[in-house]
């Protein structure tokens, strides 16, 4: 049973990353109509910024948790201003191709300087050790990742669904021209939205740094799984992305316990099944 709980926890942690990343993809897609292929690379950048902050600047994990998303978010906003915004009005596919190119550049540069091997990032002192829950041993850091991600996801949901800013955002997604007519600076909102989505990816990167090592290709394979998550959940709903992300992480964890050979492929197989049964994805709107 211990092993089952351990795999469930791993599943929940992976689910946290899926949720944070697919949430960011959904927010970006809503505003920019772009599938951000660079999301995995920016997730990796988040982990690397945390690594640099610690090793070059002596800035600890807690500050990295705040600073890395801001730094990567600003980098993302520069990308949006200098490149992505020129794609407005073109076919969606160009956005995918452009961000794929950006992902190759970012990953290639990091690979040049850091190779393909991983670098360790220590767990902060406050979160070291573990708790005995009676039925299992829970490493504190892992519990923290799950709870913190959940809080961030729900905060993002609240921001978009319940606040005035979120209302503007949703309105601009539906009809940007009309929202501009009300005097709202939609291009700036688009830039900020991209920064927000990218920041979420970077945050996931920082969270994962102490668990998985900091590697240049850490986001490359992850992003493809997240794409499958997005196809399953659909990008129409924020809450849908969060729930699908966590659920698929848990299912993957269970597969690792019951049938480890399929743990790499289970998310893709589920995607195929969902497409066969309900082609529009679980949360429904057709693309």
């Amino acid at each position: 049973m211990q092993a089952l709980y351990a795999q469930l926890l791993v599943g929940l942690i992976n689910g946290s990353f899926y949720a944070l990343l697919s949430l960011g993809l959904a927010v970006i897609f809503g505003m920019l109509n772009i599938i951000n292929f660079a999301h995995g690379a920016l997730y990796m950048m988040g982990a690397f910024v945390a690594y640099f902050l610690l090793n070059l600047g002596g800035i600890n994990y807690w500050w990295a948790l705040l600073l890395a998303p801001i730094i990567v978010g600003i980098f993302g906003m520069i990308l949006e201003r200098t490149m992505l915004q020129w794609l407005t009005g073109l076919d969606h596919l160009y956005g995918l191709l452009l961000t794929f190119g950006i992902a190759l550049i970012v990953q290639g540069v990091f690979q040049n300087y850091f190779g393909s091997s991983g670098m360790p990032y220590a767990i902060p002192d406050q979160l070291k050790g573990g708790m005995n829950l009676g039925f299992m041993f829970l490493p504190v850091y892992r519990g923290w990742v799950v709870i913190f991600s959940l809080v961030v996801c729900i905060a993002t949901w609240f921001l978009i669904e319940k606040t005035r800013l979120g209302a503007y955002l949703r309105a601009a997604t539906e009809n940007p021209t009309l929202v501009r007519a009300f005097g709202i600076n939609v291009p700036r909102m688009i830039t900020l939205t991209y920064g927000l989505g990218v920041g979420l990816a970077a945050l996931a990167g920082v969270l994962s740094a102490p668990i998985n090592q900091v590697r240049p290709l850490m986001g490359a394979d992850l992003i493809i799984v997240v794409f499958a998550v997005v196809v399953i959940g659909g990008m129409g709903s924020i809450m849908g992305s969060i729930i699908t992300g966590f659920a698929l992480g848990v299912i993957e964890g269970l597969t690792k316990y019951f049938y480890p050979e399929a743990s790499n492929t289970v998310v893709f197989v589920l995607m195929v099944l969902v497409l066969l049964v309900k082609p529009t994805g679980l949360t429904g709107r057709a693309a």
Partner: peptide, 21 residues
């Protein structure tokens, strides 16, 4: 048969996921 069920950007993501599978 599987990927044609969705269009545009989703089609690309599905073909990518299938090839990874």
């Amino acid at each position: 048969f599987i990927s044609i069920r969705r269009q545009g950007i989703y089609f690309s993501m599905i073909t990518l996921a299938l090839s990874q599978l």
